[in-house]
Simulated assay, not measured.
Amino acid sequence: MIKEIDDNNIQIIKGCIKEDQRSQKDLYTRYYALALGICLRYSNNKEDAIGILNDGFFKVFTNIKKYDFEKPFSAWMSKIMRNTGIDFYRTKIRLGSVVDISSYEHIIIDDETISQKLNYDDLLMMVHRLPPAYRTAFNLYAIDGYKHDEISEMLGIAVGTSKSNLHKARERLAEMVRSQNSILGKIEEDN
């Protein structure tokens, strides 16, 4: 975990404001894992995530003069990475490379909560397997805490579409959990 207010962090940020390449490298190294984790949530694969990450760091370095030292740097940078991921998603929609989500069959969700069944890594892997529209709505709502009207505005979709995509994401995740539990149950029976 990065200590936000340490003198070293402040010096690195001030160096980045002066466009010092060593400071930029230090900042990139220091926040790489956090930023990549965010970018992976908004991409289909690691290559896309790296592209989002690099675009995001470019925006960080370009706009670092606007950073308010009174606020946590990680929150400021995370917002830039998240917005860069959303921009990536919007571009994919415009280029027509997002899967048509209306063609998927949906299974009704149980009352069981997903969080009771999974650890973080399992959930992240399952979220990553969702279609891009579902994954983006789920990330923004369930993980980043945005409301549907905010998601609607960010993605250029109707509020109802945001709600529908979240509902369908939850259904798909619940099915993945049921499937995983079924497989684990069979493995335990065989042993």
Rank of each mutant, 00 (worst) to 15 (best):
I50P: 00
G51K: 08
L53C: 01
N54M: 05
K59V: 02
V60D: 00
F61T: 00
T62N: 15
T62I: 06
I64Q: 01
K66G: 06
Y67V: 04
K71Q: 09
P72F: 08
F73H: 01
W76V: 01
M77Y: 00
S78C: 03
I80E: 01
I80V: 04
N83V: 00
T84A: 12
D87N: 11
D87S: 12
F88S: 02
Y89F: 13
Y89R: 02
I93C: 11
G96V: 12
V98N: 03
V99M: 15
I101N: 05
S102W: 08
S103W: 02
Y104K: 10
H106V: 07
D110R: 14
D110G: 12
D111V: 09
E112T: 14
I114L: 08
S115C: 05
Q116K: 15
Q116A: 15
Q116F: 15
D121T: 07
D122P: 00
D122H: 08
L123Q: 03
L124W: 02
M125K: 10
P131C: 07
Y134H: 13
Y134M: 11
Y134I: 01
R135K: 15
R135W: 11
T136N: 10
F138P: 06
L140E: 04
L140D: 05
Y141V: 11
A142E: 12
D144R: 04
G145I: 14
Y146Q: 09
H148F: 15
D149Y: 11
E150N: 11
I151N: 07
S152V: 07
E153S: 14
M154Q: 15
I157A: 06
A158W: 03
T161S: 14
N165M: 15
N165L: 06
L166C: 06
L166K: 04
K168D: 13
A169Q: 02
R170T: 06
R170C: 09
E171I: 02
R172Q: 10
L173N: 05
